[in-house]
Structures are given as structure tokens and as C-alpha cells.
Design a protein around this nucleic acid. Structure first.
Lengths: 150, 150
DNA sequence: TTACAAAAATTGACAAGTCATCATTTAAAA
DNA sequence: TTTTAAATGATGACTTGTCAATTTTTGTAA
């Protein structure tokens, strides 16, 4: 049994709200650590993977830095710097936007697409390994998380 | 409606597992950002708050660095450095353990306890503000997260 | 007892989150 | 048109997460 009380050796919580906050933070760490070791051999971080995933989702349409930021899991992150890291690995290219010279168009490269392709089966396998729930439970969990944020 | 699809502007997901991973990572960021701005006026981070909470839970019993690490939400974190930050703010004291000189006993100070006391009502209020669920839903969510990790 | 392995904590290096500030460029107001 | 405000991205400083290496101390086996 993976009860949160055992995981962090805390017998009881002030109230159910507090327990839920702790449980979500702990579960995120559980997933993030797994993701981290999955991506490590490919020399990218979960955050960089997420940016690549966003760019692939744009299906070849150039995407600005702020648009990437809006789609990121962590809105406070520093998309500008992540893009720079990806560029130095030749996983994306960055071109000045002709319409608005303040903006910068970001595009995933073939090398970036190949990396996502290689990772795909491993990501899917890891997701199944680390989520011990059936489809109905997953749907309930997704709905409750959505509702929780209001 | 706070659906995850809208939050990150992604129409659909590869599979329910993938959607759940994304949803948990996003929800953690949602909570962590709220915590961050709550603690900011008190010049501590959510992680430092968590260490103080652990020490208070020990009820005056000296706690070693590795024991703190075991109880932290993020097991990969650097407890040694967090303790050093708290010590420089006089929120904890650090004494060499007499039985085993490799270990270091950490104890929360009165100043640290006072800080937790001041924060308590605000943390409780924030938890309620950011969790739009009833008690039954919270319990279901807690149970599903526990089961998910196996 | 010596020698070696394990445990505990610290430290260094790098990536990412957080936040403030800056420069450039665009859009709007006077 | 001139001035002002807003948008966009980059950068710097600081904290934390991640992980490997190092130091000190303890425990154990030869």
C-alpha cells in the first residue's frame, strides 16, 4: 500500500485539504523522478521534452516563445532559456518573425522529431508502469483534478 | 471549467495515462505557484516551510538530516542545504550528535515555531481557496493517488 | 588491531523555477 | 508627429532539484 502517510512518515494531517496538497506534491515528485531517469540517457530534461512535445503538436507551424510558455505545464518557467538549450542541441531552430520583429519563431527540427519518435514507446511503457489504475479510475482522477482547480 | 485541455491548449492526448501524467504535473505547478506567493512575504520557500513542518512534527525530538530527507515530499532534494538556509535565518539549530559524530541533530527554534504559527491560518485558507472539492471528493482523490503509486 | 566497507553529511556543478530588470519593437494617444 | 504605453524576448541573481564526488566517522571481517 502506497499510502501518503507511510511515504512521508506522517501519522495524520491537519485536515483533508492539507493531506491532498501534500499528496499531490508528493505524487508529482514520484512521476518527475521517473521521467527524469527515463530521459537522462537522451541528455534532455522532462521540461525540454515538454517543449519538444508542444512544438510537434504545432505540426510545423512556427511558434513564438510566449506561445510556448502559455502551453507549458509550468507557466512560471523560463521558455526563452529552454529554447536556447534545445537550439544548442540542434533540436529546434529559431528564426526572427518577419511580421513582428519582437517575436521569434521556433520550429522543431527533424533531429528533434526523431528524438520524440525514439522516446515514444518508452514514455508509454513508463506511464503504464507508474500508474497502477484502470481506465475508469484514471478518468475519475482526471475529472477530479480538473474540478479541483475550478 | 478548468479542464487540462484548455489549461495547456492541447486538444487531445495520446492516451488516458499520458493525460493523467500531464494533469498531475500541471496541478502541482498550480499549487506550488500559489504556495510560493503565500510564503514570499515571510521570506521562506515552500521547501523550507516543509522542513519546518517536519521538525515541528517531531515535537522537540532532534532529527538528523537524513531523517528529514526521508520525510520530505521530494526525496531527491538537498536537505543539507535547506537546513543551512534555515539556520542562517535562525529558524533551526544544528548540533553534533553525541552518539554518532557523523550525524547532526536539527531542532526547530521558537522563532521557527512562531513562524509556523503565523502562517497556519493563511495556509488553511489558501488550501480551501485552491481546492474546489467537497470532503467526499477529496477523500476519493487521495485514495486514487495512493493507489496510483501502488 | 588493521583494513575495508558502509553510513552520514557536506560540497560542487549544472539545470530549472522564480522574479526583477532591460532592450527592442510595436501600437496607441496626445 | 511626437510621446507614451504595451508587448516580446533576453538576461542576471537567487533558490532548489539532481547527481556525483569527497570527507569524516562507524562497524565489521581478516
Amino acid at each position: 500500500m502506497g499510502k501518503i502517510e507511510d511515504a512521508i512518515q506522517q501519522k495524520e494531517f491537519k485536515d483533508p485539504f492539507n493531506k491532498l496538497v501534500v499528496n499531490i506534491l508528493y505524487t508529482q515528485s514520484y512521476l518527475a523522478t521517473a521521467q527524469n531517469s527515463l530521459f537522462k540517457p537522451y541528455a534532455i530534461s522532462p521540461e525540454q521534452y515538454n517543449v519538444l512535445r508542444i512544438l510537434k503538436g504545432q505540426a510545423g507551424i512556427p511558434t513564438t516563445v510566449s506561445s510556448i510558455q502559455d502551453r507549458m505545464l509550468n507557466k512560471m518557467s523560463n521558455a526563452s532559456r529552454l529554447v536556447e538549450k534545445l537550439k544548442s542541441k540542434e533540436l529546434v531552430i529559431r528564426t526572427e518573425c518577419p511580421n513582428d520583429r519582437r517575436q521569434v519563431d521556433i520550429l522543431i527540427t527533424q533531429k528533434g522529431l526523431d528524438l520524440l519518435q525514439d522516446l515514444r514507446p518508452q514514455v508509454e511503457e513508463a506511464n503504464r508502469d507508474f500508474i497502477n489504475l484502470n481506465l475508469e479510475e484514471i478518468e475519475t482522477l482526471n475529472d477530479l483534478l480538473d474540478k479541483m482547480r475550478g
